[in-house]
Nucleic acid binder design. Sequence first.
RNA 1: GGGGCUGUGGGGUAACUUGGCUAUCCUUGUAGCUUCGGGAGCUAUAGAUUCCGGUUCAAAUCCGGGCAGCCCCA
Length: 465
Amino acid sequence: MKKEDNFSEWYNEIVELANLTDKRYPIKGMNVWTPYGWKIMLHIDSYIRKEFDATGHDEVCFPLLIPETEFQKEKDHIKGFDTEVYWVTQAGANPLDIRLLLRPTSETAMYPIFALWVRSHTDLPLKTYQIVNTFRYETKMTRAFIRVREIHFFESHTCHVDEADAQRQVEENFAILEKVMKPLCLPYLLLKRTDWDKFPGAYYTVGIDTNLPDGRSLQLGSIHHYRENFSRPFDIKYEDLQGDLKYVHQTTFGMSERLVGAIVGVHGDDKGLVLPPEVAPYQIVIVPILAKGIVEEVTLQAREVKDELATAGLRIKLDDRDVRPGSKFYDWEIKGVPLRLEIGSRDIKQGVVTYARRDSGEKGTVKRTDLVRKVTDILRSISDDLNEKANKNLADSIETIENLDTLPNKIVRFGWCGSEDCGHEFENRTELKLLGTPYVKESFRGDCIICGADTDTAAYAAKAM
RNA sequence: GGGGCUGUGGGGUAACUUGGCUAUCCUUGUAGCUUCGGGAGCUAUAGAUUCCGGUUCAAAUCCGGGCAGCCCCA
């Protein structure tokens, strides 16, 4: 299956063949996490936990069900979500007096409790996060990891004494994001969403977008500054040094299982998945090359190599299935294992192990005595190369345009005066989604692509996945 | 919200128009033997007509409904 020719079909086929997910669960958009896919997700979660714990966030876990009365407190928020929430209207045989909804995100579950937790300025900043499943009734076509109705979701929620401290949190989130994305080898753009596209209830929203091979953008997450938009309706107040009651300023940061979809889409090739070593369930697979008379010897060597690498902390699989080596090669290539080691009589005679890199296809040998050091080097090199390749790929997929005559099949960058009218007209005429303007200001000088007004602001747009 | 289409072993399918014999083929699973440096061969074996109801001597096939999925339009 060719990735470039038909990305959509390629994607569906690869997640199926690599056994990342089981789509046969009989509810649309609710798929089963297979052991292999779930291991990848858990590795991603572990990087998220590591970075948020390191910056003083505490992991919490709030209930799945939210009373309708809490959900309705913030007006924009409910307007943004009410067409896509699942409702629980009955318990046993009895209709509920107050309907309950399955969280589409947890603001309205957490903030009534935050109001109880926060009493004084000494309680701030309150920095929490949780990794839970959320539910959104998607009406568009669903797609494994990318558009699902039950979403494996990360969300941080913080409360601060004032807008400046909340802004500091937003900046910290960008630093965290950079650290989390490095091992996933995913490049991204930070684009401040337009006012009409920001998160329901937010003061502003920064979208985290990456690119897919067919010129589409894929949103990987978002970082929001809420100001007092939620603390007022949820009455989250603290007493400051002067004894005055003040509303907290809040931020959130959300990401989801889409990160798995992005890894598939960004790194995969015609042979299947290509997993970054840091998230791969198995970083190395050993394929013993058996032959009559040397079965014991090769098997023994393979086990020794396995133990040695496992002791060094590497995740390793010894494939001792009774099938031909070639068949194993194809299997593990589809599954994206970063490095394959082969051990046969030839290798044993020469005191080496043969390796093959999944990302580049490069093959070679390493000395048996040097094994751990060399293998570690190769894995690091694979990670570096994947990062570099993906970065270049994102840079190449952005094109600055001066008019709408011929639109490239890419993420486009263009002058925008910032007015809502021009923004809407751009979207209507191009059928692209206006993703927003760079969070970190880029130097730009040009004309608004719609009204022609002089502007120093570049906007980005793309077909959104 | 409106309209159209589909449902056959784990996956992909044939038979459906015009009802009829043991439901086809590929793949996968299991067991054994021979194999093993890029998808092995042979043998044996397992596995399906979405659910409920109707028509009929007879239903995968025709009719009604449920459930699930896909597509198009708004």
